[in-house]
Design a binder for these strands. Structure first.
Length: 565
RNA sequence: UGUCCUGUGGUGUAAUUGGCAACACGUCUGACUCUGGAUCAGAAGAGUUCAGGUUCGAGCCCUGACAGGACAACCA
């Protein structure tokens, strides 16, 4: 199956300013009609929903215009990058439904050419070796409003620079002893043009090149050239690189021979309410154990969302919905959640699960009798068929579905009130059983045998239908309820306080003893289910033989919870 | 006292490139329903940051303000 079929129609149908630029380029015959994009993560962390937006944009755009997309790892800093991240990134991109085919690249593939290019700049008098330390160079940079000053080493001879740079490469200097800089303009209003550093010495083994190199190019010196060598036509990146573009263009000007040059177009990164998106902060949450790893279902990482039960289609649809612009804003997580419900509503099979059980005894139902009742697997999908659920004298219902003194618009079970048990019978609550301290421990009810299957022969109506599970058949399960990780909508507004102060203490609530119906006995890890009237859940990989663990992906929309407030 | 970027309902985006501001999410009604889900029907909500200008006509063009953001890592 091709990527396009996998993704299905819908992806990239909505246009945006980048598509408009590309359509104009295409109409003018630019790049011989070629569209080649790239997704260039640094393998120093796990991908998050913000990356998902970029992945959908890059791969989706190429797909839309008959082009392809390169996956390129920007691995120019061996101190931060690891193979574990490379693997997780590839897994996540594939899981999202995209395919880079054989176009897998690493910035480190281009180290040789980058070195040659640096040599060329030196020969042309456009780069020099600076022996000053980091602090000095930084001070000489000036500030955005004050011009910088030139390094005393700025005017070394070409020969000396060549000799020094080769010595850097050959390990002749310690880390930090010197760097290679471009000779551009120390008084440029654009800080990035003030003799940027091209190469630094780093005696750290690289995850791919080992100890072959002891000098490594800076990102700014690598990225644009990698695009160029790979033949990228449209280099889509986030807004903060806008000010870098003149520098990238400067490098390409020194490099290019014909008309071709990659075109960088910047778009706004994704921000989400109640969420942090910086890799640094996510790493901190993982490293200091505020969450249980990169794939903790509360994390906005792709692996976290996968474990939480979000689907690739829901994430793609979300990316499509938020669109692509240059306006920096914050998208509402509820839009993401809507996309998740929308997809799961169509595909997730319905089952019954009781989160907080309350025992119900049907006093007029025969002891030891069990019957099988037919239940629909998915009303949105007739092909999903039906299943049988066991029914008996003792059941569990949801504690929230009973209220001793029903208030306002509560129309579920209460003393003297009749409700329907989904797919089963009408029952009426007659008596409340309590323990010594007065807590409700069970309900004594009677059922109407004529209402079997949930229909009343006399046309009698009940206000509510509730879910239930036959007590002797119930499967015990651990249910993990997730809520937003942070308590404030927009973390970027809270500059004075540390983001961890806003962690939601109730972001994870574990219900150790919930019950689910027996059909879930062999539910596959990561499979999606709707617990009727409650929410969407999926099987956590922590499950094993005899142990079921469910994650609440997202709750169902619940107008009663609004009523309560 | 720099350079660059951006200002459209609560949020995210549109507006055939100068022609009565549209859509989605959310919100609120109502219908239907064996999920207080889904679905369906409808409503409220912006006159496009502000002030000028060009024009028969401006969210789109021009000028000037104002507001927000990015840029001063040997990070990416």
């Amino acid at each position: 199956m091709s990527a396009k079929e996998t993704i299905g129609k819908g992806i990239s149908e909505k246009s945006n300013f980048i598509h408009q630029i590309i359509e104009k380029d295409l109409s003018e015959g630019k790049n011989q009609g070629r569209v080649l994009t790239r997704f260039p993560p640094e393998p120093n962390g796990y991908l998050h929903i913000g990356h998902a937006k970029s992945i959908c944009l890059n791969f989706g755009t190429a797909l839309k215009y008959g082009g392809v997309t390169n996956l390129r790892f920007d691995d120019t800093n061996p101190q931060k990058e690891e193979d574990e991240y490379v693997r997780s990134i590839m897994e996540d991109v594939r899981w999202l439904g995209f395919d880079w085919g054989d176009r897998l690249y690493y910035a480190s593939d281009h180290f040789g050419k980058l070195y040659e290019f640096a040599l060329k700049l030196i020969r042309e008098g456009k780069a020099y070796v600076d022996d000053q330390d980091a602090a000095t160079i930084s001070n000489q940079k000036g500030t955005p409003t004050r011009p910088g000053t030139e390094s005393p080493f700025r005017n070394r001879s070409v020969e000396e620079n060549l000799r020094l740079f080769k010595a850097m490469k050959d390990g002749g200097f310690d880390e930090g002893h010197c760097v290679l800089r471009a000779k551009i303009d120390m008084s440029s209003p654009n800080m990035h043009m003030r003799d940027p550093i091209l190469y630094r010495i780093m005696k750290t083994p690289h995850h791919r090149t080992g100890d072959q190199w002891v000098i490594y190019p800076m990102y700014d010196f690598a990225h644009g050239q990698c695009d160029f060598w790979e033949g990228i036509t449209h280099s889509l990146c986030t807004l903060e690189f806008e000010v870098h573009r003149p520098l990238y263009d400067w490098f390409i000007d020194q490099l290019k021979e014909g008309d071709y040059r990659p075109q960088q177009i910047e778009f706004a990164r994704l921000n989400l309410t109640y969420t942090v998106m910086s890799k640094r902060k996510l790493l901190e949450l993982v490293r200091d154990k505020y969450v249980n790893g990169w794939d903790d279902p509360r994390m906005p990482t792709i692996s976290g969302m996968r474990r939480r039960g979000y689907t690739p289609a829901s994430i793609r649809n979300f990316a499509e919905r938020v669109g692509v612009t240059k306006v920096e804003g914050i998208s509402d997580v509820t839009l993401l959640e809507h996309s998740v419900r929308e997809d799961l509503n169509k595909t997730a099979r319905r089952v019954m699960g009781v989160l907080n059980p309350l025992k119900v005894i049907i006093t007029n139902y025969p002891d030891n009798k069990t019957e099988k009742l037919e239940a629909i697997n998915n009303p949105e999908d007739p092909d999903a068929g039906t299943r049988e659920v066991p029914f008996g004298r003792e059941l569990y219902i949801e504690r929230d579905d009973f209220m001793e003194n029903p208030s306002g618009k509560f129309f579920r079970l209460a003393p003297g009130r009749e409700v329907r048990l989904r797919y089963a019978y009408f029952i009426t609550c007659n008596e409340v059983v309590r323990d010594a301290s007065g807590n409700v421990t069970a309900l004594l009810c009677t059922y109407d045998p004529a209402s079997r299957g949930g229909n009343s022969p006399d046309g009698r109506k009940v206000k509510a239908t509730i879910h239930w599970i036959s007590a002797p058949h119930a499967l015990e399960a651990e249910v993990r309820l997730y809520d937003r990780l942070f308590t404030v909508e927009d973390l970027s507004e809270e500059k004075e306080r540390d983001f961890k102060e806003f962690l939601n203490p109730e972001s994870l609530v574990i219900l150790p003893r919930s019950y689910v119906e027996p059909s879930l006995k062999d539910a596959a890890p990561l499979s999606h289910w709707q617990f009727e009237r409650v929410g969407y859940f999926n099987v956590d990989p922590d499950s094993g033989p005899g142990r079921l663990v469910f994650n609440r992906t997202v709750a169902l929309k619940d107008s009663w919870s609004k009523e309560k407030k």
